[in-house]
Write a protein that binds this DNA or RNA. Structure first.
Length: 429
RNA sequence: GCGGGUGUAGCUCAGCUGGUUAGAGCGCCAGAUUGUGGAUCUGGAGGUCACGGGUUCGAGACCCGUCACUCGCCCCA
């Protein structure tokens, strides 16, 4: 008797909770999102790198904040066979910062990196919230000037606009100030909340202990009232932080990026400062954040590197894939079809000839002419190249345009030339 | 981690207050059409009714538990 899960199915066919198989249609959308991000990043002068999917646990535990939810209850952490504690990455930035230090990249600053790949977080699954999900990510390392934030935010805006999501998404922006500002603000905020302790929700009372700034974006009705009258960080910025924020706003204006200042926007991770921003949508329910990031000047130092400023963002590929319009396959294949099994040999030879010439070619494995034509139709072939005894005798092929149904006999010698018109072209049925 | 909803064919769903071999549409396969796809018609395959237990003469329907998905909270991309 095979082992069974509690659900009663053989575990070998059960997906792990919060994971999914990305099948053809989804994969096309997934790729469309990734490629749009990469294409935009490239235009901004970024280069693509890849860091490991897992790191020593310390890399994340130290940088994300010992008390953050991600570290305390959401990481996939385990000991490998040598007894080292490793963790499947829950986010990109810490790994990129680690790579920056490990590879001595300090010398090559400023650096602009693009990454993509899977992330792992043990959360309760929901639409747009998976245990394995994918992100595209962009980081600028070694630039303290707000111009880097402007560039990174403009890149995000262009990326989303390129996906045709400009209307579905809005940019919210805030500043967290520098360390001095944040410390002073924290004290002020704590004092304010202490005065209103009785009226805060239980969740928020807990947050006061762990991350008081988080109370600011509570969804509880009662909390919101109190938060609305709470002191704002933007009112208590020290000179440096104020100058920084003003320059950022100016830069966005010049770059033509529309934003909305949200004084309640905060970050869950400890290493953020100054710029904090999110592109959000109403279309995905509770999981409305589609791209988020900010500045993390202290991170690399915190990890033991020479102090190096950084800024960047990550975007959820699955969330964006749900928002974009249907995508069409980019190439339609050419179907080669033998009339009768006896001609499969010569047709295979022809298929290989065309493939090596750069055409996308599909060949059925069995069946009558009608069946093979049906298959050609179903895979969206642009044209069918039909070869029967008659064609063989004349050293030719019959080429059928699948959209119009028109057929022409073409000499084998000039077949590639004739098929040029179907290369990488959608026929618009 | 907390609260609510849902779970019937590959997909979308029907199945009335528990009653004989569980249905439809789409899709799939085959044929009408032995050198021609998309349309139409005909036929066919496909279901431990999420899983386990209970109530009952009898459960897809009712009860309990589990699992998964989903909505909100939490968290966050």
């Amino acid at each position: 008797m095979a082992a069974r899960t509690k659900a009663g199915r053989a575990p070998s066919v059960e997906r792990v909770r919060g994971t999914r198989d990305i099948l053809a249609d989804d994969m096309r959308r997934h790729r469309a999102v990734e490629e749009a991000a990469w294409a935009t990043a490239r235009r901004y002068g970024f280069t693509e790198i890849a860091t490991p999917v897992f790191e020593f646990t310390e890399v994340f535990a130290r940088t994300l904040g010992e008390t953050s939810d991600i570290v305390t209850k959401e990481m996939y952490t385990f000991d490998d066979r040598s007894g080292d504690s490793v963790t499947l990455r829950p986010e990109f930035t810490a790994g990129v910062a680690r790579a920056f230090i490990s590879n001595g990249l300090r010398q090559q600053v400023p650096l602009k990196f693009f990454c993509r790949g899977p992330m792992f977080r043990y959360e309760r699954p929901q639409k747009g919230r998976l245990r394995q999900f994918h992100q595209v990510d962009v980081e600028i390392l070694g630039v303290a000037e707000p111009l880097a934030d402007v560039e990174v935010i403009a890149l995000g805006a262009d990326f989303l606009a390129g996906l045709d999501l400009a209307d579905k998404v809005k940019l919210e922006l805030n500043t967290l100030g520098d360390a001095e500002t944040r410390k002073a603000y924290r004290t002020k905020l704590l004092a304010y909340f202490a005065d209103h302790r009785g009226k805060l929700s239980g969740d928020s009372l807990n947050r006061i202990e762990s991350n008081p700034l988080r109370v600011l974006d509570s969804k509880d009705e009662g909390d919101r009232e109190i938060v609305a009258r709470a002191p704002r960080i933007t009112d208590g910025l020290n000179d440096a932080s104020k100058r920084y924020f003003d320059a950022l706003l100016d830069g966005l204006h010049v770059a033509g990026v529309a934003y909305e200042i949200n004084p309640r926007l905060v970050r869950g991770l400890d290493y953020y400062c100054h710029a904090a921003f999110e592109f959000t949508t109403q279309a995905l329910g509770a999981q409305g954040t589609v791209l988020a990031g900010g500045r993390y000047d202290g991170l690399i130092e915190m990890m033991g590197g020479t102090p190096t400023p950084g800024t960047g963002w990550a975007a959820g590929v699955e969330r964006l894939a749900m928002l974009i319009a249907e995508t069409e396959p980019e190439v339609r294949p050419i179907a080669v079809v033998p009339v009768g099994a006896a001609l499969e040999g010569p047709v295979l030879e022809l298929a290989q000839r065309l493939r090596r010439a750069g055409f996308t070619v599909d060949m059925g494995y069995s069946g009558t002419l009608a069946k093979r034509m049906r298959r050609a139709d179903r895979i969206g072939a642009a044209a069918a190249v039909i070869i029967g005894e008659d064609e063989i005798d004349r050293d030719a092929a019959t080429v059928r345009d699948m959209a119009s149904g028109e057929q022409r006999e073409i000499a084998l010698a000039s077949l590639e030339h004739h098929l040029e018109r179907y290369r990488g072209k959608a026929d618009g049925r």
